[in-house]
Write a protein that binds this DNA or RNA. Structure first.
Lengths: 107, 107
DNA sequence: TCCCTTTATTGCAATATTACGATAAACAGA
DNA sequence: TCTGTTTATCGTAATATTGCAATAAAGGGA
C-alpha cells in the first residue's frame, strides 16, 4: 500500500504522468521558464535565482534531467543546463491534441 | 523541512505546477483520456475502467476537480464528470508558447 | 419506511517527495 | 601539490501522496 501501481497502467499513461510529474513543482516550473528567457544556462545561476539551497536545486535539476526535459553539458568548471526541445514538443502536441478533441457535451 | 516552500515562489509558478501536479499520476491521465474518448461520463464507469478501488478513484477525481480540470454534475442517481475546456486550453497555450520560444542555443 | 445503488469521506499504513547540512567529487589555477 | 570553485551525493527529518477497508451520505424505488 502507498506506492503508485504503475504496473497496472499502460506505458503511455505512465510516460505522460512521469513527464508531467517532472514539472509538478514550482521550482521546476521556475527553472524551465528561467532557462527559456535567459542567455546563460549555468547551474550556479539557476541556484542563485531560486529560493532554495544548492543541494535542493541540484535534486530538482536531476529530476528534470531524468525526465528528459533538460540536458546538461560540462562547460569549463561549471555545468550548462538547457531545455530539450523534444520533450517540450511532446507536451505541446499532447495538450494540443487533447484540447482539440474536447467537446463540451455534458455538465 | 519537507514541505514545498510555496510562499517563496510566484503565484504563476505555483498555479502552473498545481495544474500539472493534478495530471502527475497515471490514473489521472487515464481518467482525462477516458473522458475524452467516451460518450458517457458517469463516475461508476470511470471506477470500472481503472485498476483501483472506488475510494481511490474518488480521491483522484476530487484532485482533478480541485485543479479545475474536470467538473461534475448530478445526473440522476450518479455523478457525471466531464472535462473543463478552459483548463486544458490553458495547458495547451502554456506549452505552445514554451515550445515556440525554445532556441537550441547550447548543450 | 426500508432496502439498494452510487459516490464521498474517514482513518490509517506504506511509500514518495521535499529540503537541507555535511561532505564528496571534479577540476582549474597558483 | 594545495586551494578554491562548482556541482553532486548522502543521510535524514518533515511532510505529502497513494491506496484501501470501513463507513457515511444521498437519493431512488418497492
Amino acid at each position: 500500500m502507498g506506492a503508485t501501481k504503475y504496473d497496472q497502467f499502460s506505458d503511455h499513461h505512465n510516460e505522460m504522468s512521469a513527464l508531467l510529474k517532472a514539472l509538478a513543482h514550482p521550482a521546476r516550473v521556475a527553472i524551465v521558464e528561467y532557462l527559456l528567457k535567459v542567455e546563460s544556462c549555468i547551474c550556479g545561476d539557476i541556484v542563485d535565482h531560486l529560493p532554495l539551497a544548492q543541494p535542493t536545486v541540484s535534486q530538482h535539476l536531476r529530476e528534470l534531467k531524468n525526465a528528459g526535459i533538460i540536458q546538461g553539458s560540462v562547460e569549463g568548471t561549471s555545468i550548462c543546463y538547457c531545455l530539450n526541445e523534444k520533450a517540450l514538443g511532446k507536451l505541446k502536441n499532447y495538450f494540443g491534441k487533447l484540447e482539440s478533441k474536447v467537446k463540451s457535451k455534458c455538465c
